[in-house]
């Protein structure tokens, strides 16, 4: 019995654990030292942006990847946090209270979105979330007395948590890095938790889950709120990064961008949304400096991803890597096999 168990537990996973820890250590060291090895503060800011968008994408991945619910209204949750914080700070509310209110309102909005959109799944869910997001965009655009309309709202300060000023690019980068690491850790725990497994169950076999005693609606509802919480955190960071908010944050284009990040990186993976966020932001801010038509290049990359790695960059690369290793590993084995005389 125990031998059988030993045989059936994947040994390869254990062997690669130390490699993984090493890789994790290197990545962490690189992330922590960004302001040192990245000389130009412009690029430090881009790193902050990548981390903010990665958090946003990780939150959306809860819905798209683990719940199987493709939302195009995520900008609504992101944007409402931006606007709440911007408005409150502009009328003199302290940063801490403004931040709490921003995230709180994002959660409340996600609950409203969830109640309205979870009546359906699939394409109808997508259309309803899209419509809800557009409503918020419309309000931001038209309610000029509060939102400033097209001009948006700008503020001139960033918060000073524990007395540390976030005014400099590297200080702000560290604040985004801390939040990013917390969200990654939270996702890591969540995905393999009983609740996370239940959520994936509702994605794969909703009816079976009901029969087994699960409340599918409530599971999806809570997942939506969790996603909203993370979108709110990302929105708040984005606002403080820009110190400015305009209806763009609530636009369909923002929802589509974050969705593309999730899909291009790989849905239902921890790394996928992070890689997707890095890809899009690097194209937008780095490649655009060299190639005017960076949008075209990004489009071509997306097409290539769909063609060669429809499951996304992270799972796709893993698949190619494994295939390559198998070919390399099996090559000498073939040589040692004695050639049987043909009869």
């Amino acid at each position: 019995m125990s031998l059988r168990h030993a045989l059936s537990t994947p040994d390869a996973e254990k062997a690669s654990l130390s490699t993984r820890l090493l890789a994790l250590g290197i990545v962490l060291a690189l992330l922590v030292t960004v302001p040192i090895w990245v000389p130009n503060s412009y690029y430090v800011n881009i790193c902050s942006q990548i981390l903010i968008w990665a958090v946003f994408a990780l939150g959306l991945n809860i819905l798209v990847g683990y719940a199987g619910l493709v939302s195009l209204g995520q900008s609504g949750l992101f944007g409402i946090a931006c606007y709440t914080a911007a408005y409150l700070v502009s009328i003199g509310t302290p940063h801490f209270e403004a931040g709490l209110a921003a995230i709180g309102l994002a959660i409340v909005t996600s609950a409203v979105f969830a109640v309205l959109s979870l009546r359906t799944t699939g394409i109808s869910f997508l259309m309803i979330t899209l419509a809800l997001g557009e409503i918020l965009w419309g309000i931001a655009y038209r309610w000029v007395s509060v939102t400033g309309g097209d001009n948006g709202i700008s503020v001139n300060t960033r918060p000073t948590p524990f007395g540390i000023s976030l005014a400099s690019p590297s200080a702000f980068y560290y604040s985004t890095l801390i939040i990013f690491l917390v969200v990654v850790a939270a996702m890591y725990v969540f995905v393999e938790s009983p609740f996370g497994i239940s959520l994936r169950g509702t994605r794969d076999q909703a009816r079976r889950m009901t029969t087994l005693g699960y409340n599918v609606w409530l599971i999806r509802f809570l997942a939506f709120m969790f996603s909203g919480l993370i979108a709110g955190v990302a929105g708040l960071q984005f606002f403080y990064y820009e110190k400015f908010v305009s209806p763009y944050v609530l636009s369909l284009s923002t929802s589509a961008t974050v969705l593309l990040m999730v899909i291009s990186g790989g849905v239902a993976t921890l790394l996928g949304p992070i890689v997707g966020a890095a890809l899009v932001i690097v194209m937008q801010y780095v490649v655009s400096a060299y190639i005017q038509q960076w949008n075209l290049v990004l489009g071509a990359i997306f097409v290539a991803i769909i063609l060669f790695m429809p499951e996304g960059l992270v799972p796709g690369s893993l698949r190619l890597w494994r295939a390559l290793r198998r070919r390399r590993g099996s090559a000498p084995a073939v040589v040692t096999v004695p050639v049987e005389p043909e009869s």
């Binding site: 725990v189 969540f190 393999e192 938790s193 009983p194 609740f195 996370g196 497994i197 239940s198 169950g201 889950m209 087994l212 005693g213 699960y214 969790f226």
Partner: peptide
């Protein structure tokens, strides 16, 4: 194993827990 565990989880209060590892239950 996880299929059957998922079946058992359906009747358990643990199903709402987002903090522990499912595999270690």
């Amino acid at each position: 194993l996880r299929n059957v565990m998922l079946s058992l989880l359906g009747l358990s209060k643990l199903r709402w827990n987002p903090f522990i590892r499912f595999d270690r239950l």
